[in-house]
Design a protein around this nucleic acid. Sequence first.
DNA 1: TATTTTACTGAACACCGTTTATATTTTTGC
DNA 2: GCAAAAATATAAACGGTGTTCAGTAAAATA
Lengths: 213, 213
Amino acid sequence: MGVKERKERDKLEMRGRILESAHRLFLERGFDDISIRNIAEAIEYSPATIYLYFKDKNEIIHALHQDGFRLMNEHFQHLTAFPRPFERLIEMGKAYIRFATTHPQVYSLLFMRGEPIEHIIHWLQDEWLEGDRAFETLKQTVMLCKKDGYFPGYDPQALSMLIWSSIHGICALRISGHMNHVKPARDQNLSLDDVMLSTFDVFTQVLGNLKKQ
Amino acid sequence: MGVKERKERDKLEMRGRILESAHRLFLERGFDDISIRNIAEAIEYSPATIYLYFKDKNEIIHALHQDGFRLMNEHFQHLTAFPRPFERLIEMGKAYIRFATTHPQVYSLLFMRGEPIEHIIHWLQDEWLEGDRAFETLKQTVMLCKKDGYFPGYDPQALSMLIWSSIHGICALRISGHMNHVKPARDQNLSLDDVMLSTFDVFTQVLGNLKKQ
DNA sequence: TATTTTACTGAACACCGTTTATATTTTTGC
DNA sequence: GCAAAAATATAAACGGTGTTCAGTAAAATA
């Protein structure tokens, strides 16, 4: 009898519908409007029902977190087309910034909020697989750059961390609204993205200077 | 008759007591435990009374925001003792990081939350004075470095923005919990601050390389 | 002293995440 | 086919949030 199987399918389908609603709420109305009650209304069930399919709200947020990572990875797919490591590294940075600017809500969910990453620490054996993979890709690229004569004497691990931190800093200050409220940016009437991109330009210059001659 | 004057004093005193309670709640129990009701309980008044002294919660948060900036400025007082600009720049970075690590809650209030900066945009003529002043100090230092032969060809404005972004990125990733959950940090069992400081070290190396020979 | 102004609060509104007892439906075992 | 058991769904409640408003008590004014 396939009753058990069907029930399992139903359960998965319901989980799917809950996540779908959460996802839509997130994209259409922002992080703060994802509430158990909003989700419940959207799927036309009572709030309590959600708890039959998810332990708590964190579990739902975590699912969105993973969705976000999938979306981000799509922005990196094209990078294999750049054979020269340093060029690829710069394109990685551009792709990262493009992702952050086109999906600021998703970016802040992935990298600026404490909740989701704390959930990972407590419930998933402290393993942040998506983060590990992304960082590893960055580090590999940095090591290839080293083979090309870039970054002599620099530790790939630490340099990768610096690169990530720097680009994250640019994106985070932009998304939180801090970057565009220091005076020069206001005065010159620069757009958000102008400031961000010119900051990134300086960074590429700086990195480009780190090469054996 | 000094009635009016006394009443004004009383009003200010009450505002002071409210802010004091908010401040203590913030430091002792964290940002999320600053609630109008908690504050009201602490000063032994009803929640509604708070609204006779502050327009809304944002106004209280903004006051804490300014307190935070004062605290941060204290961490920068000693920098005048470093006459050589580049050295001073590095010490600025160290002071910034020291502030962020010793007062993570305050740091995230100042630079990682959208609410306070949005309040500034809406209510204070879009002028973020504290931010302007701090950034200006950084830029001045960068320009002095240029006179010493550092950063040839780099725009001080853009380079300052990069420096701020990079250090902010290091602090933000640390405080949000992301930095210490990429694999290598976990494996090597490095402390939070080890990763941060080694990342900053690389940054100082990179900056130091940008000098006319 | 009577009136007006000021200071304060209880109760409510509309939310939030989460739990529990209860009711309904579905499946199982006979 | 029917009763027992299991699964599913929910109403209602708990304790929390920011905020508003009508009403009360106290103080200042005339």
